[in-house]
Write a protein that binds this DNA or RNA. Structure first.
Lengths: 248, 248
DNA sequence: TAAGCACATATTGTCGACAATTATTTGATC
DNA sequence: GATCAAATAATTGTCGACAATATGTGCTTA
């Protein structure tokens, strides 16, 4: 564990220690303060945050529910290590769930909510033109758009699944992964198309567009993975050649 | 709380108290031993199962993660009370997720797994012809079919979401709800159609059929709800008339 | 030298007790 | 008799300590 934040300890606690703890831990994991695959030591963390092991264990259990950590009986918990396959799995789930959310939102969104969405997209558009697509909108902005639609589905279970469980995993990936190939212009275009379908109350189309939107992101990850593998093998080849050269 | 099972207490514990506890609690809730909406008293349950409150709390926390109980800080946990809307929400989620599972399964299922599925359906068919569609296959049999497909998707996250989280909620509903209108013959027919699409490796069709299959079940619930409402209002009307009659 | 076993250490699982908060009862007032 | 307030009781949240299990170390033996 590399220098956890200097003991913000009791943090902005209103009450409920374990609640705050799990939030703090989520941030620590998502931001990489606790690395992927790292062991979570109960005594160490308890000391660090200045709490007993009881609330800490409860927080860890919650993280396990979210899927951020995995626990083995009598051995302990470690932060999950997202491999490419798991990431792709998540995107398949997202495609299914957010597609459904979009379909429902087309029926449920109020005109006010539709307006908010429109303003959000206009904001993104102007930002994109001015800043040539900087990181902020590729991340937070994208989240905002999807968030509003999910919430607009008015399906509480859908909202929980996407916003509470999968959300943090995606954040962790986006935060820590090698910067993915991002095409903010294209993404924005797709967002507009989705918005149009929503405004037309065309749930079927909205679902299809959202699914394609996410499926494209999934494919991009897949391709990047291929690229990485190629790079790696090239690198390994070069390295091997180099060593060979040295040896001879 | 109406007579919990006579203290099977430590149950078939291998090790890991909280693990066994959560399983035991899940069964108790699903089967209705602990009623929907009932308060979960930590001291009482701890006494009943002969454990400390520590493991019990962990088990409750897990149930919360599954969605079987809801907790309010400093107040406690109670078993969720599924209303019609929440049930319909679950079916929407199922439609999305199992649809995706079916699409993936079409690509992933081995010929052996396809054969297993076929045998299962043949078994159901013969049973149905012999027993005129008794309850077992409407419940467990249906679960088995969906289970195999979900597992066959080879998407671990999908499997977890459906088999660990939503599964118990559905069981609780099916176990406790007023018997739903069930059409085992039609369901079996739909299962066969899905199987055919899977065998043809037609993921797109398989997804569509599965979604329709679940959407139909959802509609049946919706209609039954309408019926119940009508019955209720009729009943209320009759009752009111009766009272009126008595008063006059 | 490598493999296997015994011991020591550390970590996780469980427990009982205390503190903080909520629910209930009691009593007083209108 | 009803309503509100205070005191009591009960429940949840947190803590520290002990028991059970896993990990690491050093020694023996093939």
């Amino acid at each position: 564990m590399s220098q956890r934040s200097p003991a913000k300890s009791l943090s902005e606690n209103q009450n409920l220690l374990s609640q705050n703890l799990s939030d703090t831990l989520i941030e620590a994991i998502v931001s990489g303060q606790i690395a992927q695959g790292e062991k979570i030591s109960e005594p160490e963390l308890a000391r660090h945050y200045g709490v007993s092991r009881g609330p800490l264990r409860e927080a860890i259990l919650k993280l396990q529910g979210i899927g951020l950590v995995e626990r083995v009986p009598h051995v302990g918990a470690r932060v999950v290590q997202l491999n490419q396959q798991q990431l792709l799995d998540i995107y398949s789930v997202r495609e299914a769930l957010e597609g459904m959310a979009c379909r429902l939102a087309a029926e449920q969104l109020s005109t006010i909510q539709l307006d908010e969405l429109k303003k959000l997209l206009e904001h993104h558009q102007s930002y994109l033109q001015q800043h040539q697509g900087k990181a902020y909108f590729e991340q937070q902005g994208d989240f905002d758009f999807h968030y509003l639609i999910i919430k607009g589905s008015a399906n509480q279970r859908l909202v929980n699944l996407l916003c509470d469980e999968l959300y943090h995993l995606l954040r962790m990936y986006r935060y820590q992964a090698a910067k993915q190939v991002s095409r903010p212009e294209r993404a924005l275009k797709e967002h507009w198309a989705i918005w149009q379908a929503l405004a037309d109350r065309d749930g079927e189309l909205a679902e299809m567009l959202m699914r394609r939107h996410i499926a494209r992101a999934r494919k991009a990850i897949e391709q990047q993975h291929q690229t990485n593998l190629t790079d790696q093998s090239l690198e390994a080849q070069a390295s091997a050649t180099h060593i060979q050269g040295v040896n001879e």
